[in-house]
Every structure is written in structure tokens, then in C-alpha cells.
Design a protein around this nucleic acid. Sequence first.
DNA 1: CCAAAACAGGACGGTATTGGTCCTGTTTTG
DNA 2: CAAAACAGGACCAATACCGTCCTGTTTTGG
Lengths: 152, 152
Amino acid sequence: MLRMTKQADYGIVLMTHLAARAGRQFSAPELAAETRIPLPMVSKILKLLVREDLLVSHRGVKGGYALARAPRQITVADLISALDGPIAFTECIEDTPGSCSQEGICGVRDNWQRINQAVRHALEGITLADLTQPLASPLVQLGSGRGAELRA
Amino acid sequence: MLRMTKQADYGIVLMTHLAARAGRQFSAPELAAETRIPLPMVSKILKLLVREDLLVSHRGVKGGYALARAPRQITVADLISALDGPIAFTECIEDTPGSCSQEGICGVRDNWQRINQAVRHALEGITLADLTQPLASPLVQLGSGRGAELRA
DNA sequence: CCAAAACAGGACGGTATTGGTCCTGTTTTG
DNA sequence: CAAAACAGGACCAATACCGTCCTGTTTTGG
Ligand code: FES
Ligand code: FES
């Protein structure tokens, strides 16, 4: 089906929520209530995002989470990498040779890179700031944005 | 980890192999031998690709498979859709309302589309023809025009 | 100084999806 | 009519994911 994990999905919802109300600080229970995402999940996800330096946390009774950078400087690619691990869309991207049995005879090796780049590039082209804007011209910042250049 | 399934991975290898030697017809055992992919898998995948009209098959003793269209008209997106199902990168793309619990309060709804489009677009931008070319300047054939702005 | 609220960091099991094999047809060649 | 190859599924084993829970540690404020 080719989809990202629910963790990343949730993560984007949470971060968007946070970005739309930037400045303030939100606790996990608070975010869970507002997004209707089960609290344990919210908690788990936020913790991961802190470790990846996309959020900063404040402990204690009046604790909570806030964005670590400006919305414009957090991309969807960042979020997905943080929550689902590196964007290794195809199998043979590891730079370590020998990891793939094909290697010697494989005619696509280099092309995997190409595909990975394309996807990564597309995801890097979308920031949290973009996601908070209600998308004025419907779906058409694509051609002008990243990703199109891949094609020529 | 965000990767496509092995089926799609294999599929791309197989199709690239086929595209590089277009015109001819290859049997499943033949392809299995040349790509070192287990025969049952090869068979399974090729059958799927036939159903999706990306390959044409010929039965009988001297049977085999050949591309259904020109390499330039088969995109990586086609292959992935055929083998892994529709590219529904995020959860809430179904146009049928009610499929998501968030719906009412969700501020990202429209943005899922944006993300999906970006990924799909990127994958539609790569054709089999591209994959058969050994990619001259390493990963930098981005702006069709030779070595202009890349720099850095 | 202590209790409550919130973050930190893992461990854990149930479930869905995938990867891979195999079996039983049907079509074609010679 | 036998062999080679495609067609179409059924079928498990392993894996990854989703979601929960438990045991700390830090901060607030009475
Ligand atoms: S498939 Fe692994 S190197 Fe090509
Ligand atoms: S998350 Fe489903 S509609 Fe927004």
C-alpha cells in the first residue's frame, strides 16, 4: 500500500497543531485531548521528537512541549526520518558495499539513489509552515516547488 | 523505516532489466537466473504486472514476457501502484468522508493531499527509460540542462 | 518537604502485513 | 501428447507496527 507509519502520520498532525499555535507550550494530555489521538501514543511520539531536536520539552507540573525551530525550518522529511527512521525508500541505499547480494550484476544500483533522492526531495519541500496554511491555490504549489526539477 | 515493499523493489529490477533489452521476450526462469531473484517471486511479480497491463505475456513452451509499452511511458509510480497498491502515503486520502475519526476537527486534512501529491509526482517523474541510462553525472541530472546551477 | 503533574525511557504482547513457497490448472510448441 | 511456460490462488513464517504500561526523574507550589 505504500504508506508511512501511523506514528509519522500522528506526528505530523501533532506538529501541525503545535505550529499553528506557535509560541505557546502544550502538554501531552492537552494535545491528546485536542487531536483525539490516544495519550500513550502522543506521549511516545513527542518523546521521540524531542530526542531528534525537533521539539524542546519542559518538565514538571507546568511542563510541556514546544517547537525547537521555526515552522518554516521543519520539513515533513524531518518528521518522517525522526519517527520512522531514515528514508531508505529502496533496499540498496546503504553505502556499505556488500549489503546487497545483487551488487555485482545489478544494473539499477545507482538508480535506487535517484528514486530515493526524488522522494526525499519531495518531502523536504514541504515545511510545517506550509501545512498550517489552508492551501490557497489547490494543490498547485507542486510544479513550481521541489520535485519537478527531477524530471526536466 | 519508510521503504517500499520488496515486491516493488524486485519489480523495478525486473522491469529495468527488461527495458534495457527491449524488443526481446524473457521467460520467468530466464529473468530469475539473470537477476538472482528467487523464481517463485519473479513469477508472482510478473503475473501481477501483466494484470496491470504493464507487461504482455505469451504462453506455451517458447513463452515469456515483454513490456507492454515503451520504457519512457512506464513510470516508477506505475510499478509501485501495480505491486503495492495505490500510493496512499497518508491515512486520510480516501475521498469517502467518515473514514477518519478526526475529520471534523482535523486541521491537516487538505494537507495530506499535498504530501501525497508531492510523493506521487516525484515517482511519476522517473521512467524506465531513465533507469536504463547509467546516469552520467552522479545524481546530478536534476536540471536537465548540463551542469548549470548545481554548484556546492 | 512532600504530593501531584508532567516528561523520560523502555519493555511488552496482539495483530496486520510481507516475503516466499507450492499446488493445481491452462496454453502452446513440436 | 509430453514438456515448458504462464495463470491464479492458498498457504505459512517472520517481521514490523500499534498501542499500552511500568518504573523512574524533574518541577511546581502549598
Ligand atoms: S539491487 Fe542491490 S545493488 Fe542493485
Ligand atoms: S487526520 Fe483524518 S481527516 Fe485529518
